[in-house]
């Protein structure tokens, strides 16, 4: 935590809080779907629950951003009244680990679209392994499980990776992120463009 500024932590935590509310809305929505279709009902929207780790990591670009933000979001969701209670914190931790692992593999230096998509899929994998054991999915038939995993991977890449990037970029455009790594990068890019235009 040493290299983090207080400002970065508070920003990360506030983003997590906002998304915790969104997560909870989706949890209830997912529960209704699951009521009809069983656990399969969750799969198409599963990626939305990883979005905070992508956004936080992409904006702040520090080791731990993906993991911690996802955990905070889960923590707040738990306080707001998620069905699985404190267990959801562990779920968040597991999902965050998946994304963080991808960023770690990229040495926390590369935040391109492919990496973000992979990070979303990373969360899909770890969360699936978790569900296999704790949610008792292990009791389901392998073919059904494979279908679930595939849908979840797509969902993770699109709803977390792609959507997360789109949201962060439009945020950076409004100028609120000027003090964060993403905003600074954007500023630098703009400067280069204007310099090129000048010559």
């Amino acid at each position: 935590m040493k290299s983090w500024k207080v400002r970065e932590i508070v920003v990360m935590s506030v983003i997590s809080v906002v998304f915790a509310v969104i997560y909870l809305l989706f949890t209830h929505f997912g529960n209704v779907l699951a009521g009809f279709f069983g656990p399969m009902g969750y799969e198409p929207i599963y990626g939305i629950w990883f979005i905070v780790s992508i956004i936080a990591a992409y904006i702040i670009r520090k080791p731990g951003a993906a993991l911690i933000s996802e955990t905070i979001a889960a923590f707040v969701e738990c306080l707001l009244g998620n069905p699985s209670g404190p267990m959801v914190i562990v779920v968040g931790l597991v999902q965050g680990l998946g994304a963080e692992a991808v960023f770690l593999a990229a040495r926390w230096r590369v935040y391109s679209l492919p990496i973000l998509l992979l990070a979303g899929m990373g969360s899909s994998v770890t969360s699936f392994i978790y569900d296999l054991f704790v949610a008792g999915y292990a009791a389901l038939s392998p073919g059904y499980l494979l279908l679930m995993l595939t849908i979840r991977l797509f969902s993770g890449a699109l709803l977390a990776g792609l959507l997360g990037k789109v949201i962060s970029d439009s945020l950076a455009y409004t100028g609120v992120l000027n003090g964060m790594a993403l905003g600074k990068e954007l500023k630098k890019k703009r400067k280069q463009v204007s310099q090129h235009a000048g010559f």
């Binding site: 209704v32 009521g35 009791a139």
Partner: peptide
């Protein structure tokens, strides 16, 4: 009131496991 959403969820899980059990 807070238990209601979980009842729905529990019903969903029960149903899936019963139908798609291994």
């Amino acid at each position: 009131l807070f238990t209601i959403p979980f009842l729905i969820l529990a019903a969903g899980c029960m149903w899936t496991a019963a139908v798609f059990g291994k």
